[in-house]
Design a protein around this nucleic acid. Sequence first.
DNA 1: GACAAAAGTTAGACATGGCTAACTTATCTA
DNA 2: TAGATAAGTTAGCCATGTCTAACTTTTGTC
Lengths: 128, 128
Amino acid sequence: MRQAHESEMAEDYVELIAELIETRGEARPVEIAERLGVKPPTVTKNISRLKAAGLVRREPYRAIFLTDSGQELAEACRQRHRIVVAFLCSLGIDEETAERDAEGIEHHVSETTLVAFGQALKQSWKHE
Amino acid sequence: MRQAHESEMAEDYVELIAELIETRGEARPVEIAERLGVKPPTVTKNISRLKAAGLVRREPYRAIFLTDSGQELAEACRQRHRIVVAFLCSLGIDEETAERDAEGIEHHVSETTLVAFGQALKQSWKHE
DNA sequence: GACAAAAGTTAGACATGGCTAACTTATCTA
DNA sequence: TAGATAAGTTAGCCATGTCTAACTTTTGTC
């Protein structure tokens, strides 16, 4: 029961960092800035907050890595994200909208609701 | 196509103010503070921002009223809120959780998704 | 290897939305 | 109606997350 209550910012960052490491081999501030629609100084500042929170490991001017707990948080976020997106899509919503809405919605979905989404998703497979 | 992009704060406040006026006859800062879980000075400050934004009308130490555009925004928010709550409940989620989650989710639901929720809700009536 | 371009950082400002402490105004009640 | 209590405001502080301008470091290319 790790009630970590990280900020949405933290979740968005670790989620994206994990994705960038997976797809690009490394996570660079310039990519993060582009993807999140913010400027590089904002990324620098936020990454240092993440570092202070023990979620990332990093040397100045170098690529960004996740710590174990960052990794863990990222995995949870990505899982939740996938469920929300899939659920929205199962309602007939186009992928782009589903992606966009999920980014906002995922931070406000309780465990209860997430489970319900998963359940509904399973139902939609049966009736497809 | 009034792309007003009011803040979540503004939406939460006008929504609540409309509800208080309906159920209590008037909207008072002390009630707003309790319901939103903030302290009275925060309410004072935010109400003055809402006033500056043309959403509420109000004299110091008096009750709070919505302007026409505040009214309009409140109505839209309440409508969206109702749909999101009803939709979550239709998934089998308990009302309390649905209410809690909806408060966070409703600000991130696009028109497309809202329509899809409404559609799914209609389906659930048929199959109830 | 030098130097230009790209990437990253630092410093400092700003808006939002929260707080406490102290004060003022309104309301209730004896 | 006076005084106590409740409600509301003001002033000033803080954290978060954003920005621009100017600087430093790294990278890529001739």
